[in-house]
Design a protein around this nucleic acid. Sequence first.
RNA 1: GUGGGUGUAGCUCAGUUGGUUAGAGUGCCGGGUUGUGGCCCCGGAGGCCGAGGGUUCAAAUCCCUUCACUCACCCCA
Length: 420
Amino acid sequence: MEKITAIRGFKDILPDDAFRFQEVETIARFVFNSFGFREIRIPIMEKTELFKRSIGETTDIVEKEMYTFRDRDDELLTLRPEATASVIRAYIEHNMFANEQVTKLFTIGPMFRRERPQKGRFRQFNQIDVELFGDDKPQSDAEIIFMLIRFLQSTGLKDLQLEINSLGCKACRPTFSKAIIEFLKGRENELCPDCQRRINTNPLRVFDCKVETCGTIIANAPRILDFLCSDCEGHFKQVQSLLNDLKISFDINVRMVRGLDYYTKTAFEVKSGALGAQNAVAGGGRYDGLVKFLGGPEVAGIGFAVGFERLVACLPEEGKNVFQTDLFIAALGDRAQKLGFKLTNELRRAGIAAEMDYADKSLKSQMKRADKLNSSFTLILGDKEIDEKQAQLRNMKTKDQQALSLDNLQKTIITFIRER
RNA sequence: GUGGGUGUAGCUCAGUUGGUUAGAGUGCCGGGUUGUGGCCCCGGAGGCCGAGGGUUCAAAUCCCUUCACUCACCCCA
């Protein structure tokens, strides 16, 4: 039989890694809660239209990376490529804006993009997504960036670099775009094919190009920060000053452009080494106007997403995979097997991590398994012991071994393990 | 979507100018201790050499095709 493998770009998260995912999730919930964010759980599929409208018709994500299919009733559905659109949809659908001035939400789960897989990039990947609605003040920007950094530091992530930029708003960005196009016109021939295409699709992206000639050309190009309207400029200055107050160090990267259409004003990204080419662990920004654009009220918004797999990949290796068993029961003989089975499961009912071998193998092999399972204690229970109404409890670390009476055995074991 | 690299045991990898029964380490199972783990010693199981086709007396090895994985571009978390 030909074996069936997982879909390309879809990964199994094996127990060792799943353990680390759990730890990171726990930290995320703790940190976010302390900043007043509450969890929301949303579907992994939405009507295709939602993503087209929010992310932008001409973005790569919408043009060629979405898993879209036609449902039986002919409706077009899409596996979500990001979470912001869905969170906003839910925010509007449940009139959450009517309940409170500011709404702070986070969600954790899988996203889907049909890209070519590489290091740090998968077709199904998990994101931690945070959104803050109802506040357009720079304090929100600073707060959310501060929280992101706090969270990343709490997970043990070292050498992280925060980069920020302002992308302007619908008042000032178009002027800048025009200026860039103006600047690039006449030099198209000197640009790489990709950048020639970008002039029409997303001129700001030329700033990002890694081709050397494009880099030297764009170095003299107009800068977004010189084009910001007074509102955007003031906002950006304040964000910087607030971050300084919070002792968060950052670099301004005027070349940073975000790939999604909806971003305005502040954009930010956190990079870390050891990730290969896909070195962005988290990214986000402000998206004032998007909520209204998706049919809600005029409400400001800002958020970010953390690449779960990328974050875990950056974390130090140590401290993983310590699976512990409290007690292994080595049963020898039929009567012992029967008693052991009962005892094992009774102990589990009491919350003790108990294991035993049902195959009635040699004591040696059972001891080996106890060792492998990282068991603190092993209870040696043979038919011989049963005749003598006792069992041997061995401390695997100290090798101390003592006889316990079969009467009240379960209770004695529990006290032993709890007092360890 | 485009380009490079790699496919041999559960895992990490050797395998010479094509040549007999394809190896090591690790892991797994068993034994050395007829009832006591880790260290050590001994033994065993485990391979359509990614798949298909071709060249040859003979292919893991050479050629073609294909698939998968991987890294990079593009783009993004």
